[in-house]
């Protein structure tokens, strides 16, 4: 079963260890990045990693504005908008395993070397085809 683990720049409940990254020490920044790399590498080894991408914070809303007209763009985003920072797609046995892994991701170290306790959004993928049941 595939799950999406979503990290947020903003929009998720505040984490326990809520200090902006540029206020950590350089070693703490390195330790965090190493943890993230190790996490992805471990999931590749267990055969559970599918994809991971990071997103820039900038962007815009875009919508169709009628025939012959260019699309309307609305940006930069308002301060209140939920903002996704990146995702990881995992393919695991169960919801429980997805939750376990999200918990590990959330334990990534932050300021003072302590876990950030960041809230990770976990979402099951809808499958592309149905199982034959008759």
């Amino acid at each position: 079963m595939k799950y999406l683990l979503l990290k947020h720049y903003r929009g998720a409940p505040a984490p326990v260890n809520d200090v902006p990254m540029d206020q950590w020490t350089p070693d703490e920044v390195d330790a965090h990045m190493q943890y993230m790399r190790d996490f992805a590498a471990r999931l590749e080894e267990t055969g559970e990693f599918v994809d991971g991408q990071a997103l820039a914070p900038e962007g815009a809303f875009v919508r169709y504005d009628g025939e012959g007209r260019p699309p309307v763009t609305d940006g930069p985003f308002a301060e209140t908008k939920d903002l996704i920072a990146g995702w990881m797609v995992i393919d695991v046995e169960s919801w429980d395993r997805a939750v376990e892994l999200a918990g590990e991701l959330s334990a990534a170290p932050g300021a003072g070397g302590e876990p950030i306790h960041e809230w990770i959004e976990v979402r099951p993928f809808l499958r592309a085809s149905t199982t034959v049941t008759e």
Binding site: M21, D22, Q23, T25, P26, V29, D30, M33
Partner: peptide, 13 residues
């Protein structure tokens, strides 16, 4: 991004 974040942290420090 990681490099620049580290630089920001270094100067803040």
């Amino acid at each position: 991004r990681d490099h620049l974040t580290r630089e920001a942290a270094r100067v803040r420090h």
